[in-house]
Write a protein that binds this DNA or RNA. Structure first.
Lengths: 222, 222
DNA sequence: CGGCGGCTTGAAAGGCATCAACATAAGTGG
DNA sequence: CCACTTATGTTGATGCCTTTCAAGCCGCCG
C-alpha cells in the first residue's frame, strides 16, 4: 500500500531509477512498497510478469532446482538494483525469485512503466543502460578455479554494494554463494578459511573486510 | 556499403528485428551491411560503442582472455540474433567480439536507433523483449556435470537456430564450445564420442543430428 | 536452555584438466 | 591440383581440484 511519507529519493537515494523517479511521473506509478521476509518467495516459475521491482533494502535471487535436487542461482539482485527485466520477453517469470534477507522492494507496474518509457527519453535511456549492465556482467562466474571465482565475486559484490572502508556484510549464506558460483558450501568455507589465513580478508559472521586488495584482484585475474 | 537489392525481410526473414524493419523507418537507418571472415575481430575491449549488429549469417562470440592465457567466452550470438546490447551502458565494448565463422552483419547506428525507439512503440517493445530474452537465458552454462551442460547447450543451440529435422551444423569448434561451457576441447570431444556411442547423436565434421531427443533432454536436466 | 540452520574441518572418491601423441580436416602456396 | 602447413579433433595416462559424506561446532531464536 502507498506510503505518503516515502518520497522516492529520500528513502532510496542510490536506486538505479532515482534519477528518473524524482524528475518524472515514475513516482506516480509506484503503487506499492512491499516487505519480504528472508527466504520469502516473490515469484515462482510461470508466474505472470506484471511488475519490475526496485530493491530498496536486502537482495533477491532468481533460481531453479535441477532434477538432481540441487539449486542453481541464475541471477543476484542487490540493494539499489532492479529485478524483473528477465521476465519481460515472454510475460512470465522463468525462475523462482526469493529474498536472500529481509528485503524491501518498490513495485513498478510494468504496463504503465512502458507507457512512461515512450514519453520520457531519459527514462528510456536509463532502462536500456540498466538492462545492458545486467547483460555485460558476471563473466567471472563460470571459469577458472574456485578461488578465482570467489575473489572475483567478492570484488563484484563490494563494487555493486558501493562498499566503503573495504568492509561489508555478505548478503547471503555460503550455500547461496556456492549455488551462485557453482560450488558447494564446504568449498566456499574452505576458501574463506584460506583467504583469511593468508591475510587477504578478515571475516566473521558474514562481516567481511578486505585486508589486501591488490592480492585479491590478482587472484581474481584482474 | 549499401546494397539496394538487399531489402530487409527478403534477405533475413527471421531476424529478430524484421517485424519492425519492414514496417518502420528502421530500414532507413540501416546504413551498412558488412562481411566478417572467420576469426575476424569486430571489436576489442574499450572500443567505442556505436552500432548494434543484426546477424544475418554466421555467429559472433564475446570473449576475454584471463591472466593465465585461457579464453573465456561470455556471450554467443547466432544467426538472426542481435549483438551489441551489452555495450550500451557505458558506451564501450567490454569484450572482444569475434566472428566464429564467415559472418554477415547488418549495422544499426545506435543514436538513430534510439531516436526511433522513442517514436515507435512496437520497436521499443521488441528491443526490450530482445534484451530480456538475452538476460533470461543460459542457466545451464555453469552447473551440473560436463555432460549435462553440453546436452543443454546442444538443445539451446538447436532451438535458437530453429533447427528442423533435428540436424544442424555446429557453428563453432570444440575449443570454442569448451570456452563457452568452461570445459576443455578434449572433454568436449570425449563427451561427443560418448553421446555418439550411446546412440543419442550422430556427428561428423560438426554436422550433428539428434537421434534420441528424449534422452538428450533428460541428460540436460529437462 | 534446546533446537536448528549455518559454518568448519577431515578423509575419500571422482570428474575434469593437463600433457602427450597422433589422426584427420582445412587452408595455403607453388 | 598437389604438397605442405596449420588448425582441429581423438584417445590415453596421470594428477589435481572439488565434491561427497561425515562429524562436530557455533550462533541465533524461540
Amino acid at each position: 500500500m502507498m506510503n505518503d511519507q516515502n518520497h522516492i529519493g529520500s528513502q532510496c537515494p542510490n536506486c538505479a531509477l532515482v534519477p528518473f523517479c524524482s524528475k518524472s511521473e515514475l513516482e506516480t506509478i509506484r503503487v506499492n512498497q512491499r516487505q519480504l521476509k528472508r527466504h520469502e518467495v516473490l515469484h515462482r516459475p510461470n508466474n505472470q510478469f506484471s511488475h519490475l521491482y526496485a530493491i530498496q533494502e536486502g537482495a533477491l535471487k532468481t533460481h531453479v532446482t535441477e532434477s538432481s535436487g540441487k539449486e542453481i542461482i541464475h541471477g543476484l539482485y542487490l540493494k539499489n538494483e532492479v529485478y524483473g527485466c528477465d521476465a519481460i520477453y515472454n510475460g512470465r517469470h522463468s525462475y523462482y525469485v526469493t529474498a536472500l534477507s529481509d528485503t524491501v522492494i518498490c513495485e513498478i507496474f510494468y504496463p504503465k512503466f512502458l507507457k512512461l518509457l515512450q514519453s520520457e527519453p531519459n527514462l528510456l535511456v536509463g532502462m536500456l543502460e540498466l538492462m545492458s549492465c545486467q547483460l555485460a556482467g558476471g563473466v567471472y562466474r563460470q571459469f577458472g578455479l574456485a578461488e578465482q571465482r570467489l575473489c572475483a565475486f567478492l570484488l563484484d559484490l563490494s563494487s555493486r554494494l558501493r562498499v566503503e572502508q573495504q568492509a561489508f556484510l555478505l548478503p547471503m549464506t555460503y550455500l547461496d554463494i556456492g549455488h551462485y558460483l557453482g560450488l558447494t558450501a564446504e568449498t566456499v568455507s574452505r576458501l574463506f578459511s584460506r583467504l583469511k589465513q593468508e591475510g587477504m580478508i578478515a571475516i566473521q559472521n558474514r562481516q567481511i573486510r578486505f585486508l589486501w586488495l591488490e592480492k585479491l584482484k590478482e587472484l581474481a585475474g584482474d
